[in-house]
Amino acid sequence: MLEFALKRLGLTLLVLVSVSIITFALVRLAGDPAVALAGAEASSEEVEAVRIAYGFDRPLTVQYFGWLGDVMKGDLGFSNILQRPVMEVVMERLPVTAKLAGLSLLFALALAIPLGVLAAARRNSMLDRLALSIAVVGQALPNFFFALLLILIFGVTLRWLPISGDSSFLHYLMPAIALGYFSTPAIMRLTRAGMIEVLESDYIRTARAMGLPRRRVILKHALRNALIPVVSLTAVQLGFMLSGSIIVESVFSMNGIGRLGWQSIQRTDLEMMQALVLIISVIYLALNYFADLLNGLLDPRLRVQ
């Protein structure tokens, strides 16, 4: 298991280095950062002064390794728009998005896995059709429209839940449902497909022939193997929730990194945009790494391969 973990860690670090290079290059390819920092109305002398002050006149390789060294020390730069260190702003906003993503994932798993298991256990039944219908609606319904429906029903008509902000647990319920429901179809379909494949395996037939209870066969013997691909998908979905919460956070006026990213694009805050892309990429890679480790624990064949 240790060798498996070290190999996966090596691959993750290689991808991380590639991501850092791409992140650094994209900001430069998007335009002259000195012009963006100085402003559209700045003179050529002012632009040149900004270029020298920020080191944009140095070779790109020197700029990259200097930036990478600062990142390794925890220095993600300074936002000229907010007049604050980037790391300080991100650390203020990240807990909001992390709570939202965590609750969204719990909602998606609590809905998708039981539906997928029941749909596979009762194939072609009314319950199976209901589960597939929920998946189709979830894929077809944009999360911003679903979020507005939730606000209209539970916030405006029934007045059960607050419609904006992030100061209490109740503020997170509607955003978590709106974001989590969008991830439910993929998890549910994969769980159903995995369960159908496992339930047709020889060892499951043997377990049934031995007279084991149906519930025990499904929950103890079949579900563990069926969830192996779901673990990897869950890591990807959690990463999507962390990075793809821009619309939901904007609809519900939540001060997370998703909304911060959108504001940074509007303000042309290059340092903030670069930092957010890097942070979200690191989170994605970390989630996938731990998903690989968990899959290795669940299925020893992966470790051997």
Rank of each mutant, 00 (worst) to 15 (best):
F144E: 01
L132W: 00
A222Y: 03
R224M: 06
R159Y: 03
L212A: 14
L148T: 10
A209P: 07
N225L: 06
V198W: 08
T184Q: 00
S232W: 01
P229H: 06
M174N: 04
I196E: 05
V137K: 09
L132Y: 00
F169C: 03
A193I: 08
Q139R: 14
S168Y: 10
S168L: 09
V230Y: 05
I204Q: 04
R224A: 09
S201M: 08
R189M: 12
G180N: 00
M174Y: 00
F154C: 08
A176K: 00
L199S: 02
N143S: 15
R159T: 12
M241Q: 12
I134A: 13
G165A: 13
I153V: 15
F144W: 15
H221M: 04
A209Q: 05
T157C: 06
L173E: 00
V217K: 04
S232T: 15
V156T: 14
R215T: 10
I228S: 03
L152M: 14
D166S: 14
L179T: 06
R214T: 12
V198H: 05
P229A: 06
Q237N: 13
I196P: 04
P162C: 09
R192M: 09
A176V: 02
T184Y: 04
S133N: 14
T234W: 05
W160V: 14
I187T: 03
A186P: 01
P142A: 11
L199Q: 07
I177R: 02
G239T: 02
M174R: 05
L242Q: 06
M195K: 10
Q139P: 01
V230M: 01
L212E: 09
T184S: 01
I153E: 08
G155P: 07
I228M: 06
N124R: 15
L127M: 15
F154W: 04
Y203R: 11
L238H: 05
L233S: 01
M188Y: 00
E200R: 15
T191G: 05
V156Y: 15
L170T: 13
S133H: 09
G211V: 08
L149N: 11
P175H: 02
L238F: 15
F182K: 14
L130Y: 11
M195D: 02
A140C: 13
I196W: 00
I177P: 02
A235Q: 01
R192A: 04
V136C: 03
L158W: 14
N225Q: 09
V230K: 04
I151T: 09
I153S: 13
G155Q: 09
F182L: 12
